[in-house]
Nucleic acid binder design. Structure first.
Lengths: 212, 212, 212, 212
DNA sequence: CATGAATGAGCATTCATTCAT
DNA sequence: GATGAATGAATGCTCATTCAT
């Protein structure tokens, strides 16, 4: 008779996924503090006590969101950029494309990862820092590889600052692209790639801009 | 009678400045939601009703913070980059240097502008968007000027995306520099300038990176 | 198939005993309100619904605890003091010793009976009052018997007040002995016996202390 | 016009007293856990936030209750028993009378001090222990004084156990008197005095009851 | 001008209790 | 017989905001 109208008595794993889904949306829309457990529970279609039973607390729930979404983003970028035989520029391009595509297709996830989480102190900052470190490390690896191929001379600190700037530019562009109608992930990735590769090339050739 | 213990009966402008000062610190430290009017009033050394009398509400107070700090940042960048006769690269360099210097010297101000404000919806986003538009516009102007000088061919959309990427990289680098001990404003500015100018030059010469 | 890992399918009586055991511990440790059915169920090694199935409700469970422990205490005291042929002082001594021994050997039980139960209103107070009445009645019986032997003149009200005071002193001493390391049950019983018997003797000889 | 119908805008000290009054009633009636801040606030005729503003938290409020009531009880007993020139028995009598009178006239206060506070762990137990120690110390002082006057030989441990038993009997009798209609404070005090003094005298003469 | 007094509304969290299997 | 799944109803606590003086 009943056609699972409200889907009661679901197994725990399913419920947990629903809850984290709802939480990601709410945290993305309102931020950590402004998001209320009531709203999350209602959006997930369950009662508040169940959220606490399964996820523990608001803090743990937020951490679970960050972990899950960070894993998904990392997975997408890694899957896009893995091609071992490809030259570094091709792999950077693939990684950037995968990154912008993920950000465009999962705006709530990207919102949580890029903005909401940073504004809270520990323990969220740490969780987020790990994601950023992995991405920056991945980019720094590509830059270093390219530098070796080109016999360029760059210090480790330079490589890190560059990777940092590139990651920052990517973050900023992704948010901007999400907010600006008509900008595709491919365009955003191309812009950044153009912007970055030439600059990287120059740096590796030690042709630097200097004041005066 | 009066022991001048706590400097009573100050003119309104002074009191307001004290309050906004306190508010910037609190918002920077805790974020918009987590900052409490109690703490702000106490830090400003006034009673809570006075804050409401002068600044209206928490929302208006936050807006006042954003406006004042955005004005200060813009003023600093404009003052640094104004030299009318200088070539565009020198002016971009001066602007970047002024920007990173401001962010380093006023970390609370930069915190409010870069992170805290974005995480809240309207009307703060709008306030912030205006600051960003001004900065991006300034950068875009420089890029356009340079493009004309170099007879390069770039569309307006390209210029905007570039300015956006540059601004994003700058934002990200500024936060990173503030969090990383030993990184000076000048280093950060130099890194970005190197990174950017070559890429911009290539773009304007229409030498683009493209996949495959 | 079954590894007998957790002793499933036990007879109801055994399960109930486990539950009440666990409940006594929890109520003793946290008090009625602060003890949670979750903790009790977990400590008993069963699921919560089973607790409800067997014991009905938190209130009924607590009542069951009081009843069982009160019965055990009464049984211990009665067993100790029954010797029909002995003189009343010997029987009081035996009863006191049994009482302090029980309190020392079953601290959780004594905690529930002495403190936790009283702080809750009906219906627990009633349950407890019955235990107290039985003990006070037993003591009053001994006092009355001794009074008759000594041809003393005491009213029923006096006997009751005396028994009440004696019971109170005993309660207080038992708790104090449990909390004070190095105090044995026998010492506590002796202290009270010394304290009490002389006063009782005086009273029965109508040698009373009176002010002025 | 307005006849102070609800007495708004009262000075802080008055409000605090009202709140603690209400809290003592609620804690006495329901115990610490079961008493709700809502009920306390309503009974005090104020809003809940005001209770928190002035008293801090439920724990601090309870502590404030214990402190205030313990002080009042101690003050009453001390005032009753101070007569420096009187013999120890007269002073014990006066102290007991003051004690039972206080317990009879302030049943909620006595409830809080005697039962409610004990069932909670720290920090309430400590607060309460101090009251008990003061009373037991006072009683022990009297017993010791009497022992010296009578050239009796009692160890310090005996004196403490006796004082403990006496205090316990007093506590128990006070509660019993409060619960039993028709028992006056004077009767309760006399019963205990009779009960105690003879026993104390015997002990000091080393005439002890011993089994067998 | 400036503040002590006061609150309505909301939030994270917990708990006793009950179904559906 | 036994349990995983689920919740209604509180509870302690906080905060932005406003009067009355």
């Amino acid at each position: 008779m009943e056609h699972a109208v409200k889907a009661r008595r679901l197994p725990r794993v399913v419920r947990e996924r629903q809850m984290v889904d709802a939480a990601v949306r709410c945290f993305a829309r309102h931020g950590y503090r402004a998001a209320s457990m009531d709203e999350i529970a209602e959006l997930a279609g369950v009662s508040k006590p169940l959220v606490y039973l399964y996820l523990g607390s608001k803090e743990e729930l937020f951490t679970a969101c960050i972990r899950r979404e960070a894993g998904a983003l990392l997975g997408a970028v890694a899957a896009g950029a893995e091609g071992a035989g490809l030259p570094p520029d091709e792999r950077l391009w693939a990684g950037l494309l995968a990154f912008f595509t993920y950000a465009a297709e999962h705006p709530d996830s990207w919102m949580v990862l890029s903005l909401r989480a940073r504004t809270q102190g520990e323990p969220f900052a740490g969780e987020l820092a790990r994601l950023r470190d992995e991405i920056v490390g991945f980019v720094a690896g590509l830059i270093g590889e390219a530098a070796r191929e080109a016999d360029g001379v760059v210090t480790g600190r330079d490589v890190n600052a560059l990777a940092q700037a590139l990651a920052g530019a990517a973050e900023s562009l992704a948010t901007w692209a999400n907010e600006t109608p008509g900008v595709t992930a491919k365009e955003a990735a191309a812009t950044l790639m153009n912007f970055a590769w030439a600059g990287l090339g120059n740096l590796m050739k030690s042709e630097r801009w200097s004041p005066r």
